[in-house]
Every structure is written in structure tokens, then in C-alpha cells.
Amino acid sequence: MNLVRIKEKAIHFFFFTTGISAVIILLGIFLMLLIRGVQTFKDVPFFDFLLGIAWNPSAYGEPSYGILSMVVSTVMVTLGAIIIAVPLGIGTAGYIAEIASPKKRETLKPVIEILAGIPSVVMGFIGIVLVGPVIAKIFGLTSGLNALNGSILLAVMSLPTIISVSEDAIRAVPKDYNEASYALGASRWTTLIRVTLPACLSGIVASVMLGIGRAIGETMTVLMVTGNTPAMPHSFFDSVKTMTATIAIELGEVPYGTTHYYALFAVGAILFLTSFGVNLVAELVTVKHRRGRA
């Protein structure tokens, strides 16, 4: 009797622990970033860190720890990616969900999912040998390793997420709406633009947010193709150094326990919070979307 109860409790404990392990790991990572990151501010005033343009931790004279340039770089590259990926992604999703024959759909969907599986280093490679030279040639630049290159590749990388989530959303729209629209004399195109897409807008917003989340955190590709100049970018043709690339490049070489070391953790914490926020919004929108349907 007692043995059975102990066994029950042990099993219960096991599943409970595994169940909440994701939460524990998440919290652990955040705390680690936060605790180390906060120590930056013993030496660097918070606002100098947040609003400073110059990031030069290994300067001979006065080192500077301003992250604004890299924040702007990250935002720029991500925004560019989204501007490219959203029309393309929603268009593809609309085509797959509403227009393609079942046979085409069954071919396209797995292909798009394979696109998601391409390693980021391979994407970076393509950026260096293909996209970079093409950009340089078209716009007459000396180097094609810039923000635009990063945006294009991140767009390709976030496409599978955007397509598959919005396609699900479009297909979840009740056929009744489409039929009502056709019965009023609307064409397929009008129906898609004015009935189907508005009806699943929140699902599409969620797909875009998830795409942004994917793009913000991407490291290897942007590190390889954006040129990594730690300065304030003025256009998409400037070489930029994003937050992720900065951490990846510098953390391996920085001496343990220095201000520079802690500053990198602070950058990581900000990155974490941003992508957490974006994912949270996506999640909230999706939940609202499901409820609205019920």
C-alpha cells in the first residue's frame, strides 16, 4: 500500500519535473543573462549603454559601450527581411490554400518545409558567393556584404514560418464565407483579398510575428553576410554589425570578468527580451484568433 503510494508520487514528481523543465531552463537562461549583464552598469551608465552610438570595448584610450548602432542594425536587417518576406509569404500561402490544385499543394508544402531545414551557415555561404556579388553588381557597390544582403537571406529563412502559419490560418476560414462571397458575384481574387484574408488577419499577424522572432535571433547568416562594421548604418547598402553577430564574434575572445564580458551579456539580455516580447505577442494574437473562432 505504502509502496504503491510512494511509486505514484515518484512518477508524479518525474512527470511534473520534466513538464516544467522548459520553464526552468528559460528562467535560468534569463537570470544568467540578467545577473551578468547588470554588472556592466557598475562601470557604464545605463543610458550611455543604451543610447551610445560607439561600440569600441577594446579601444586604447577610453573604451565605449554604446549599443544603439547594433540595435539599429538588427532592427534594420529584420525590418528589411519582413518587408520582403511578408508579401511573398502571404502570396504563397494564399496560392497554396486557395488556388493551387491538391496535387500542386502536396508538392509545394514539403518543399517549403525543407527550406526551413537549410542550415544557416549554408544560407550565409549563398549570401557571400551569390547574393553579395549580385547586389554589388546591380547597385554598383564595392562589396555586397551589407544590410540588404542580410535582409534578403533572413527573408528567405523566415518564409517557411510565415507561409505555413498563414496557410493554416487561411484554410481555417470557413468555406461558408467564400461561398457567400462568390454567390454575390465576387471573383476569386476579390474574395481572397476582401473576405478570406481579413477573416484570418490575426493568424497572419501571428505568422509575421513568428517570422520576425526567427529573423531577430538569427546569427550565423547575418554574421557572414552583413560585413560587421560596428558603426551607425545610414542605408541598406551600409555594412552593419547586428547584436547577435557582435555576441558571436566577441564572446569567444573577451577576457572573463571584464566590463566588455558583462556588456555582451547585457546585449544578450536585451536580445532575449526583444524576441521574447515578439513571440509573446504572436502567442497572444494566436490565442485570440482561436477564441474568436470558437
Binding site: A180, S181, L184, G185, A199
Partner: peptide
Amino acid sequence: EIRRRIGMVFQRPNPFP
């Protein structure tokens, strides 16, 4: 044109959202 001249009401009420 046909669907404009021949309207339809469906089994389940299906107003747009």
C-alpha cells in the same frame, strides 16, 4: 453576372465577420 442576378441564401447563416 449570373451570380449577381441570381442571389443565394445558405443553409447556415453565413454573414461575413
